[in-house]
């Protein structure tokens, strides 16, 4: 037997398998006419608190569900359930992000009659940005105590998102955080971003964000009538 060397041109997307699974999840969610939001931020920036308020507001008129992604524990899912919303926990056991295949494993538990499905990703502003989960919209959150220099430091999260939410805005009077500057910087990276300022404590911005999502749901349903 003789050994020979050769080159094979492949040109295959390394994340292709994740994108394929995400694509079939997206297809199913659209068939069920569910608006799905993937929420990205660093740990402690208020994803769960925002979801408690926003979820309850939307639940006045709609059916809402929440998937919680965490490295360990079921704490966030318990918090969401306590707030009165159905929640499903995915624990990644070490992985720093959610992948479409993790979602596929629990997908059968998600009721088909939901209007809104929120996916709270693992707290991390870097890794989750690379993985499509089949969502309709992606939110990136940044809280006032984190500082206003983040968008350009974590560009992928801002480039791939549709909505930028500045959370904990009740702290704006006390901290050197320039909300206009951070908005301008985020829009420089991604001019298509919709920007909202919220506070889960005072309720600021929750109505506006919920109205935005209602409009997006109508849009999705008129496109997939």
């Amino acid at each position: 037997m003789e050994k020979s060397k050769k080159e094979v041109l492949v040109l295959e997307d390394i994340l292709g398998s994740n994108k394929k699974i995400a694509g079939s999840i997206r297809q199913k969610l659209l068939e069920h006419r569910i608006l799905t939001v993937n929420i990205l931020s660093s740990p402690g920036s208020g994803k769960t608190s925002l979801l408690e308020k926003l979820g309850l507001k939307l639940q006045e008129k709609y059916k809402v569900g929440v998937i919680e992604g965490d490295v360990e524990t079921e704490r966030d899912a318990e918090r969401i359930r306590k707030a009165g919303l159905p929640a499903w926990q995915i624990t990644t056991h070490g992985a720093c992000h959610l992948e479409a295949k993790m979602l596929a494993q629990i997908f059968d538990q998600i009721p088909a009659n939901l209007d809104f499905l929120f996916i709270e990703n693992v707290g991390n502003l870097v890794c989750p940005a690379s993985f499509d989960l089949g969502e309709s919209l992606r939110f990136v959150l940044l809280s006032v105590p984190e500082g206003d220099d983040k968008p350009k430091k974590y560009p992928e999260a801002f480039i791939t998102s549709n909505v930028f939410v500045i959370t904990k805005c009740d702290l704006l009077p006390y901290l050197p955080f320039d909300a206009d500057r951070v908005t301008a910087e985020a829009l420089e990276i991604n001019p298509k971003l919709e920007v909202f300022r919220t506070s889960a404590l005072t309720g600021e911005g929750i109505d506006a964000l919920s109205q935005y999502l209602e409009n997006k749901l109508q849009e999705l349903r008129s496109k997939n009538a």
Binding site: K3, S4, K6, D13
Partner: peptide, 19 residues
């Protein structure tokens, strides 16, 4: 508009075969 810079591709492999 961003046209490249987000890609993640396996471009090519060099392999050994026995014949």
């Amino acid at each position: 508009e961003l046209v490249s810079g987000r890609d993640l591709y396996l471009e090519k492999l060099e392999i050994e075969t026995e014949s």
